[in-house]
Each structure stands twice: as structure tokens, then as C-alpha cells.
């Protein structure tokens, strides 16, 4: 099998397109590169969707945490505590077994005039169940970041808005939130990197792979188990993840420049890669 043929057979193996059987013997370097790369599809899928849904949920939770009404503030605080205080790994397990417990046939919802059957089986699949957990998890961590940023919005900005007669929703949308986002962005970049790395946990935590369609770490682990040689697949995986991390830093850096475009050059905060200050 040439490398081109391998690419054709396995490039989309992680989503079930191409050769059905994984390579069993005589593993080539090319196979490892292609298969682990194809697994990255899942890591990207989880990271991109979880970040895009999680961002809006996090914004809502962060605003709820600043509320003076305890009925709104307390649930937000508990949500953040629950997801930041426990390991993501355990959250995956718990969510998976909870979804398994839901009735196989679906839940009957009686609306009085019509009865709907909610199908719950898809929740036990990784693409949905794990995504829900990741969205909630990143929302909790990001909400903490945004909450801190909302509290550090300069007092003068808000007072100036008041003086101009901007208040309520308009003040939040035009003054408070853009400033908070600008302040939170470097920390949020690190959260994005961490979430990207956390996507490797999905297929090792309860959620089963179907037809050996797993993520990059799943295939790297497969090769390491088969060849009993960890020195090839894991560095390949590391290379892919370093590339992904650099891409995130680049992309979020562009957005950071955009958010800071009105500031004088010297005041702009560059993004520094310091993930461990968040989690």
C-alpha cells in the first residue's frame, strides 16, 4: 500500500468513510500519521462546537452571577461550583451512565392534546452526550473568567455611559460587555486551549466508540497497544496537538487584536500562554 492509497483509505476513517478494517500488521509511519490525523476530526468537532455553544452559555451565567437577586445568582454560582469543582473525567462517566439509565424506548411527554415520544438513545452517543458535558464544562470555566472581567470593568466607563444617558441593555451591550470581553480574552484563549486538550478524554470515559471511529488519542493508543512502541504514535499526536494549539493562539490573537483595535499600541495586552492559571 503506498502512502497515497493509505490516505485514500483512512483519511476519513474516524467518521466511518473508507476502509472498514484498521491496519492489523506491518504498521507504516504513513498509516499512523493518516489515522491519528483523521481522529483529529473528532477533537476539532468537539472543541469548535463546545466553544461556540459554551461561549453564549458562559456569558449568560456570568451575567447571572452579577445579579443582585439571589434566585438568579445562586443557581449560577452552584453551576460554576459543580463543574469547576469536579473532574471532567468523572462528569463524563456520570453523564454517560445517567443517559444510559434514561428509558431506552424514550420518554412519553403528554401535552394534553397530543403525546410526544422523546427519543433519548442518541444522548448515549459521544457526538451528543459528550458534547453536552463539554459545553456545560467550558461554560462554567469561561463564566468564571467573564465574571472576573465584568467585575474589572473600569468604574469610569460605566459612569460615563450613565452621564450620556446610556443605561440598561444598551449600556451592557455597548459599554460593559465589549470591555469585559477585551479584558477576559487572554484568559479565555487559555481556556480554549485547555478545552481542546480535554476533548481527548471523551473516548476514554464511558462513551463507547462505534465501529472503531475514535479521536486522535484513541488511534494513537491503538497503535501503541498493537506495536508496543509508544515512541512513534504519541509524538505524532503531540505534533498534531501543538499545531492545533498554535492555530488557536493565532486565531484568538487575531480576535484579540480586533477587540483592542481602538487602544494605543502600548496598552494592548498580548496573549500569553499561561493555561495553569485558570484550571
Amino acid at each position: 500500500m503506498t502512502c497515497g492509497e493509505t490516505f485514500e483509505a483512512y483519511a476519513l476513517r474516524a467518521i466511518g468513510i473508507g476502509e472498514r478494517l484498521l491496519p492489523q500488521t506491518d504498521f507504516t509511519l504513513c498509516q499512523q500519521f493518516v489515522l491519528i490525523g483523521s481522529g483529529m476530526v473528532w477533537n476539532l468537532y468537539f472543541a469548535v462546537l463546545a466553544l461556540s455553544f459554551g461561549f453564549f452559555l458562559a456569558a449568560a451565567v456570568a451575567v447571572a452571577r452579577t445579579s443582585h437577586n439571589p434566585l438568579i445568582r445562586k443557581p449560577a454560582e452552584w453551576f460554576v461550583f459543580l463543574f469547576r469543582g469536579s473532574p471532567l473525567f468523572i462528569q463524563f462517566f456520570f453523564a454517560y451512565y445517567l443517559f444510559v439509565l434514561l428509558p431506552r424506548e424514550g420518554i412519553d411527554i403528554n401535552l394534553g392534546f397530543v403525546e410526544i415520544t422523546a427519543d433519548t438513545r442518541w444522548l448515549t452517543r459521544a457526538w451528543a452526550g459528550a458534547l453536552i458535558v463539554l459545553v456545560l464544562n467550558t461554560a462554567a470555566y469561561s463564566a468564571e473568567i467573564f465574571y472576573g472581567a465584568l467585575n474589572s470593568v473600569p468604574k469610569g466607563d460605566v459612569e460615563a455611559a450613565d452621564a450620556y444617558g446610556i443605561s440598561g441593555w444598551t449600556r451592557f451591550r455597548r459599554i460593559v460587555w465589549p470591555t469585559a470581553l477585551r479584558l477576559a480574552w487572554p484568559a479565555y484563549t487559555n481556556e480554549a486551549i485547555f478545552l481542546f486538550h480535554a476533548t481527548t478524554l471523551v473516548f476514554f470515559s464511558g462513551f463507547p466508540t462505534r465501529g472503531q471511529q475514535g479521536d486522535a488519542l484513541y488511534y494513537a493508543n491503538y497503535f501503541a497497544d498493537k506495536t508496543f512502541n509508544p515512541f512513534v504514535p504519541y509524538p505524532i499526536l503531540a505534533g498534531y496537538f501543538i499545531l492545533g494549539t498554535l492555530a488557536i493562539i493565532w486565531g484568538f490573537g487575531r480576535i484579540n487584536r480586533h477587540l483592542n483595535r481602538h487602544l494605543p499600541q502600548a496598552v494592548r495586552q498580548p496573549i500569553r500562554f499561561r493555561p495553569n492559571y485558570i484550571r
Binding site: 486538550h197 480535554a198 481527548t200 478524554l201 476514554f204 488519542l217 494513537a220 493508543n221 501503541a224 508496543f228 509508544p230 515512541f231 504519541y234 499526536l237 503531540a238 496537538f241 501543538i242 494549539t245 500562554f273 493555561p275 495553569n276
Partner: peptide, 22 residues
């Protein structure tokens, strides 16, 4: 300092256990 933080920690755990053993 920088390598360990650029790569998922779980990949390092899986790697080190076999690599150290060997």
C-alpha cells in the same frame, strides 16, 4: 516547561507509563 503544556496531559500519562516501563 513548555512541551508538557502544549500537549494534553492524558497523552503524556499514557505515553510515560509504557515508555518508563520499557
Amino acid at each position: 516547561i513548555s512541551i508538557v503544556r502544549g500537549v494534553p496531559d492524558i497523552a503524556f500519562f499514557l505515553f510515560f507509563v509504557i515508555a518508563l516501563d520499557q
